[in-house]
């Protein structure tokens, strides 16, 4: 453990801005990518369920004379 204290850890030997800046962007990109995929799936599910309801609707119309 080579950090005396937490503030020392964040100072990162004076390069805190650069180190944490790059790690922050790294984290943002990863989370951003996952979020993008998740809401892409969510909108897709919404569309699919609409299509599904529509087809079920048609099928039930056809069956009733």
């Amino acid at each position: 453990m080579n950090w005396a204290s937490w503030s020392d850890f964040f100072a990162m030997g004076g390069y805190g801005f650069y180190v944490w800046g790059s790690y922050l962007v790294f984290l943002l990109c990863i989370i951003g990518e996952i979020v993008l995929i998740i809401n892409r799936r969510r909108t897709l599910h919404k569309q699919l369920s609409l299509i599904h309801k529509a087809t079920k609707q048609e099928m039930s119309n056809e069956t009733t004379p």
Partner: peptide
Amino acid sequence: GFFVAPTDFQQSEAYRIIFIH
């Protein structure tokens, strides 16, 4: 990367960016 790796004598702490770069 942060707790075990020693401080680099030449670049002190900035080199830790290497772990994602």
